[in-house]
Design a protein around this nucleic acid. Structure first.
Lengths: 234, 234
DNA sequence: TCGTTCTTGTTTATCGATATTTTATCTGAT
DNA sequence: ATCAGATAAAATATCGATAAACAAGAACGA
């Protein structure tokens, strides 16, 4: 049998079909900020950039469109989705709705493996901060993966594939805003403490406290990125 | 200038780009039951069926994939999504999460126009039942459009585009199951009364009552379609 | 009976052509 | 002289057909 060929280099960056690779590549470039919000995504440019044909590129673009990172207007091509306060508020709104219910269901149905997952991912996140010190600005992508892992672990036992998928999509959409916030974090102390408390509430099966803290945690991004008087109440 | 060419024949069935038309057509055929759950969606078959080229068809298929009506496996083509009790439970779970929060926000932010929309759509629905009698099985598609309009009107003031879009998608996904339920409804009396009460709770700005009734309403589909002992609690 | 290979049907990707949009320039009017 | 409008040209997206790659199934041989 052939060697497994490093397939775990980047998450599904080397996936089988070219359409998926195109979608993955473009998504990563948008999330990383290499493709600025509002940029025109000309087919020919992308063909040269990624060395992928026009058809699989269009297919990947179409797939990304439904994830909210791309907007495509009829016959006028694709653009990277704009960032705005309204959009972040919308994302947060939807995230709150999904996660409030998902964490409730997870607390109801969660078993020992679920609890272990929360503790494990929280530990990994703490270790990462300890290792890299307070300077996790550079390795933001790596750290964010752990952060996403923790929040996913919180909801993992909710029993709904759609909820987990929606959470994953919304988390990725919020990443572009979170990048701004990350640079403003001075110490990892408060960050870890916040998440520790969140985990404690969840593991104590305290639905109300967990929901309240989760909602506040989600809203904190808005206040950080757009520090105007927040008129959106929970 | 040229004549406007009947564009309102079916909602975006004659949309500009062929990809959208393909997506719309396939979606309608899946929802109407012409394409059975689990059916293979061979490209050549679809090309003959819709007289649309392979490329826009693939693009429409990709777009539908993210809406949950189509599943596509790597290099093994596309299939219509299966129906199952677990899938319906998943849809209901997600719908509950979204609508519970959306109706809360709508009640908070809703203005007079929002109230008027609820009353108007409820009235249309009642009139439709009165006109067609208790036999709204045949015109299920028309009636369902009014039903969707009412539920959309309930949430219209939630202020979140993503929530409204998610509601629309989930409503469509549930349509295949609701078809089964519609045939079991004997009289439109209870149906209208239920929705009248729901509207009353919402218009009275009673968040708790509206949420409770909405959740029960969503769960009623599960009990109708899969009348086994429901182990999923709200 | 099991493994290998060939064949067939399928999906997927590339290329070329058409129609649409967009931009820039030119003309006319204020 | 400047601005608005219209026309033309260039660029761009969409579409359809052809070719290659992949997976599954069947047949043959061990």
């Amino acid at each position: 049998m052939p060697a497994p060929e490093r397939t775990l280099e980047r998450p599904q960056a080397e996936a089988g079909t070219l359409s998926e690779r195109a979608a993955s590549l473009i998504e990563q470039d948008i999330l990383a900020g290499h493709l600025a919000p509002g940029s025109r995504l000309g087919i020919v440019d992308l063909v040269q950039r990624y060395e992928i044909g026009a058809t699989p590129l269009r297919e990947g673009l179409s797939r990304l469109m439904s994830r909210g990172l791309i907007v495509g207007i009829g016959q006028r091509g694709f653009r990277v989705a704009e960032v705005s306060r309204e959009d972040l508020a919308d994302i947060t709104c939807m995230r709150t709705a999904v996660e409030i219910e998902a964490v409730r269901l997870a607390i109801l149905h969660g078993d020992a493996a679920w609890e272990a997952g929360i503790i494990s991912t929280l530990h990994q996140m703490r270790r990462h901060i300890e290792r890299t010190g307070n300077e996790f600005r550079e390795g933001a992508a790596d750290f964010d993966r752990l952060h996403k892992g923790f929040h996913t672990a919180l909801l993992a036992a909710c029993g709904s594939q759609r909820m987990l998928a929606a959470h994953s999509d919304l988390y990725d959409q919020a990443y572009r805003y979170r990048r701004v916030m990350m640079a403003a974090i001075d110490s990892g102390e408060g960050f870890i403490r916040t998440h520790q408390m969140l985990a404690d509430h969840v593991l104590a099966r305290d639905v109300a406290a967990a929901q309240k803290m989760l909602a506040a945690h989600l809203h904190s991004t808005i206040d950080f990125v757009y520090p105007s008087a927040s008129r959106e109440q929970s």
